[in-house]
Design a protein around this nucleic acid. Structure first.
Lengths: 224, 224
DNA sequence: TGTACATCAGTGAACGCGCGTTCACTGATGTAC
DNA sequence: TGTACATCAGTGAACGCGCGTTCACTGATGTAC
């Protein structure tokens, strides 16, 4: 993993002993766990350190303030997102694979990640509308992923009806992430009258993406 | 406008004199205006009443607490949404109109509303993930709109490749609102590498919706 | 191989600030006779 | 048509609670000689 840019290194004081590496990890885990239940500003520092089997002082030895922990979480996640995308959308990996199975695999993978980190994703969505630094990081990751998608589309232009692959990749990316963002905001109920299982949601998103691209297979079959 | 259900009547004490009707309206306007700039919990009651040329006491004479004003705003907006949808998606209104122009008109209309009430929409998205009552109301409106869309699709089944029109309507609705929700969260920059003008975004959403429905026109033309 | 010292790490009671809310009061509007 | 009284509406200083943050302290780990 390449080092993040200097400007992004400010959220956490990197610990020097192994012991406090543990403490830091426990704090980060506790934070993610608490985000499953409440939004960040309803999580108190006291509850956080209790959950992380740490103490208030230990917290402030690592982070200049409460907000920095969340910033750090998002920064780490953004970096992971970029590296995961690099690996998952690598050109060679999908050599000779057609668009539909490719997209289906990717959407399934991303959807599963949303389930596994629902709390963090909810908070990121909330923050994006509030905090320019979150927007910056989120848009940076999106930009990176969109460019990777565009490369894959470029090689499969014969399967689709699209001129500008970058713009097509952008929209396809928007559909995927905005629908998942919305689903994850509605914790215990669907956002509308139709309840979809995870695979059904994935299939619906795939169909929307292929449909947007003008992929022939999209219209050949009714919605399952 | 039919009266809201009794359970929904609790957020505001309805005023008895014309004078305080004005005060109430000014408070609501001020709240919506402030939401353009900051999330609700960063808006202080003091700043709110200053903007609304009112006073703290007047505020608490109308609302039991700060949160109730926001609840009231959402409730009012939800009611408006249902009535607007009833009028806009009325069967007779679109008699003989084909799917593509119908959808284009509707998407353009909704997108414009998102621009006009961006602050409130941002806050609604935030709250949906936090507050079950918001989710309930939002999902109720969505359910109503989806059913209206399903009726319009049912009459145009020959144009599309779809079995279950309710489910198709649900997904088409999700695409529209989730993409707009996402766009509106990114206040001053696009959520990715591609900046779209308002009409371009509308056209992209229309294409995604028609593509999902398996509409023939969707594949006939590249993305503009 | 022990002793002394420096730094790192962790602890939690106490502080203090911001902001929602209360409340005692003034002024305006309506109504009875 | 005026007077008295009741209710409605508005005012803003003061209160108090929740929670982030500070800080004086204890204990653990590393290092020099």
């Amino acid at each position: 993993m390449p080092p993040p840019s200097p400007a992004e290194l400010q959220w956490v004081r990197t610990p020097q002993q192994a012991r406090s590496q543990d403490t830091l990890a426990r704090l980060l885990d506790a934070a993610e766990a608490m985000l499953e239940e409440s939004p960040w500003d309803q999580c108190t520092v006291a509850a956080l350190v209790a959950r992380g089997k740490s103490s208030i002082g230990a917290f402030y030895a690592r982070f200049p303030d409460k907000d920095s922990l969340l910033q750090h979480l998002h920064q780490r996640r953004s970096a992971e997102g970029i590296h995961t995308a690099d690996a998952a959308l690598e050109r060679e990996r999908w050599q000779g694979v057609q668009l539909a199975p490719l997209i289906r695999a990717v959407v399934g993978f991303v959807a599963q990640d949303y389930v596994d980190h629902a709390g963090l994703h909810r908070e990121i969505v909330r923050r994006n509308s509030t905090d320019a630094r979150f927007r910056e990081r989120s848009a940076h990751v999106a930009g990176h992923v969109v460019r990777l998608i565009a490369l894959l589309l470029e090689e499969r232009k014969s399967e689709i009806v699209v001129d500008d692959t970058l713009r097509a990749a952008d929209m396809v990316h928007r559909i995927l992430f905005s629908v998942l963002d919305q689903s994850v905001q509605f914790v215990d109920r669907p956002p509308g009258p139709v309840a979809l299982t995870q695979p059904q949601l994935v299939e619906a998103i795939v169909r929307a993406m292929l449909g947007y691209l003008g992929h022939a297979g999209a219209t050949a079959r009714s919605n399952a």
